[in-house]
């Protein structure tokens, strides 16, 4: 928080609700705070329904009906982009903040060649003729490691595999020199070797352009290998956020601890069984009173069931929303063979 000038995007108390009936509201995102620093990779991790995708969509203001942004601020370049007119927002979307989605198949128009789509993306924001656009298209294809760009531009999306399409999609997101790239589960539907290739391509893009990236995933392995800072979400709330190593080695929140303990490792654990978190994630239309994690938490006390814990600082750059943060060390707990 100290070096304010480095923060490129700051989200303050973001709330996004969905109408689900005449009087009913599902609070998909309820008070999310985080900041993205220039040139860093922020990983948002959470289970399905924890509000991580909605958070990303709220930043770009593309939440579909019946959802609406109920409050909060998203500060980008000193301006709250939740309050600016839609027309101005359009010039930010894709241009300064761009996004890639989970499914690379539906993200493309099947009737247009890759080249036409890349050039359209470029020309829609900076009309400059096809020659310049083509040059830019080749530049971004090269950025994601596609060397035979000329050929690729003439082909249609269906001629490529899912992994290759996702690569092209990253290229398309990069064509307007954005400042921030939001990747919403970019590898979830892909196989394991393709996943590694895509992450490799993303980190290569990051290194070459110095772009700031928000990656949303449910895979602890992916965030820990790719991101600099990690931000954990549960039931629409921010649970814990900190730089990567701090979070992985000394997590404070019982939910983070539980997640880390339950991840299957490549190394052999001494215990045959994984330590799992009991119970199920809460039903978002009926979130329990108090701390949303309390019903599944082995350390929960009376206070947890009554009062919602606020996000507070527990260490340098380390925020945690828990009444009773744990003093936990991963190295002491994981018994490796």
């Amino acid at each position: 928080m100290e070096d304010k000038e480095n923060v490129i995007l700051q989200v303050k108390d973001l709330r996004t609700y969905f109408k689900s009936g005449p009087q009913k509201v599902v609070k998909a995102v309820e008070g999310v705070n985080f900041s993205l620093k220039q040139g860093r990779v922020l990983g948002i991790i959470g289970e399905s329904g924890s509000g991580k995708s909605v958070t990303a969509k709220s930043i770009l203001r593309i939440v579909d009906e019946p959802g609406y942004i109920a409050g909060g601020e998203v500060i980008f370049k000193g301006e709250d982009i939740l309050k600016i007119p839609e027309k101005k927002m359009r010039s930010i979307r894709g241009n300064e903040i761009s996004m890639i989605f989970q499914d690379p198949t539906t993200s493309f128009n099947p009737y247009m060649t890759i080249g036409a789509q890349l050039m359209e993306a470029y020309n829609s924001h900076t009309p400059s003729g096809s020659e310049k656009a083509k040059k830019e298209a080749l530049r971004v294809l090269k950025l994601v490691g596609i060397s035979n760009g000329e050929e690729v531009l003439k082909k249609f999306p269906c001629e490529f595999s899912a992994g290759f399409r996702q690569r092209i999609f990253i290229a398309m997101a990069m064509i307007l020199y954005p400042d921030i790239l939001i990747a919403d589960e970019p590898t979830t539907s892909l196989g394991i070797t393709i996943q590694a290739e895509i992450i490799e391509a993303l980190s290569e893009v990051q290194k070459q352009t110095g772009i700031s990236i928000i990656i949303i995933t449910h895979d602890f392995g992916v965030v820990s290998q790719f991101s600099d800072d990690i931000f954990v979400m549960y039931a629409g709330r921010c649970v814990e956020s900190s730089p990567k190593k701090e979070l992985l080695l000394k997590p404070k929140h019982p939910y983070t601890v539980g997640l880390i303990r339950s991840v299957p490792l490549l190394e052999a654990r001494k215990t045959k069984r994984l330590k799992s978190i009991p119970g199920f994630p809460p039903d978002m239309s009926n979130v329990p009173q108090g701390c949303p994690f309390a019903p599944r938490c082995e350390y929960a006390q009376e206070k947890c069931r009554q009062e919602v814990p606020q996000l507070r600082e527990v260490g340098k750059d380390h925020m945690c929303a828990c009444h009773f943060p744990l003093d936990y060390d991963v190295n002491e707990d994981t018994e490796l063979e």
Partner: peptide, 20 residues
């Protein structure tokens, strides 16, 4: 390749990239 491609926390702690 499969062993290298499997994402894991310990690889993240060692700052190992995704060189598969």
């Amino acid at each position: 390749v499969l062993l290298k491609a499997a994402p894991s926390i310990s690889k993240g702690l060692e700052d190992a990239g995704f060189d598969i």
